[in-house]
């Protein structure tokens, strides 16, 4: 059974509908990528899935239960965690406090120490500057905090929006490496990435979003050989 299932989601903003019936399934333990050109509605989809926006139509099932009418914080408490686009850190709080806030939910609090150690192991840089205000960190460090904060929530499913946006190739590589390590622990993930080549390389499965719907889907390896995908998203 799929861990997260998105059924026929339609969503949009005042006056403009962006999504026109998106279907998506995340299998447990798999890393899935969502591909699509700028402005097609990937962020909108993630926000709707998380409950930050109410859908016009459609439903979201998590662990077999209908969560469509739950608030975002209730979904987070249930184990759905989004690392949002643009990081959205608590800029006025320290790194440590940001991670602490990540572990706000009841489920995450119990294993706070272990999770903290895991995050520090993944991003040793963070450990060196726990008392620094998140707003004063470099872009790459901020992204590490954002991912680390998401991990502190002890997600059942981790959704990452624009993981490597604005990072140096080296740092992007570090983060992708972190992803593969997380994958090995059995974490289910949904990735939205500008760097489609890289994303498809690490993913198991992929969806291509176009004109408000799922345009293509399939195992990541196959999609990366698909002519249309190669032309449109890989620039080959």
């Amino acid at each position: 059974m799929a861990l997260l299932q998105v059924n026929d989601i339609a969503s949009g903003y005042e006056g403009v509908q962006i999504l026109w019936g998106v279907n998506l399934k995340l299998e447990p333990g798999k890393l899935t990528t969502l591909v699509g050109s700028n402005g097609v509605g990937k962020t909108t989809l993630l926000k709707t899935v998380m409950g930050l926006m109410a859908p016009i139509n459609g439903s979201v099932f998590f662990q077999g239960e209908d969560v469509t009418n739950l608030s975002a914080h209730a979904r987070a408490n249930a184990g759905m965690v989004l690392v949002p686009e643009g990081r959205q850190l608590f800029t006025e709080m320290t790194i440590y406090e940001n991670l602490e806030m990540g572990a706000f939910s009841h489920r995450a609090r119990a294993n706070f120490k272990q999770n903290l150690d895991k995050v520090y192991e993944l991003f040793p840089r963070l450990k060196e500057r726990t008392r620094q205000k998140a707003g004063t960190l470099s872009g790459g460090e901020q992204q590490m905090v954002a991912v680390g904060r998401g991990l502190m929530a002890e997600p059942e499913v981790l959704m990452l929006d624009e993981l490597s946006l604005g990072l140096s190739p080296l740092l992007a590589l570090t983060l992708f490496e972190a992803l593969t390590r997380l994958k090995k622990t059995g974490l289910t993930m949904l990735l939205v990435e500008q760097n489609v080549t890289m994303a498809l390389a690490v993913s198991d499965y992929a969806y291509v979003l176009a004109e408000g719907k799922v345009h293509l889907e399939g195992p990541a390896r196959e999609l990366s050989k698909n002519d249309e995908v190669r032309r449109t998203y890989l620039g080959i």
Binding site: H73, Q88, L89, M93, F104
Partner: peptide
């Protein structure tokens, strides 16, 4: 305190707080 930190988090970024499971 936990509640106090939640207040600061919500003040700082309400959406992010909500995403972390804080009932904003």
């Amino acid at each position: 305190t936990r509640a106090g930190k939640a207040i600061r988090a919500v003040a700082n970024n309400r959406m992010a707080a909500e995403l972390m499971g804080i009932p904003s």
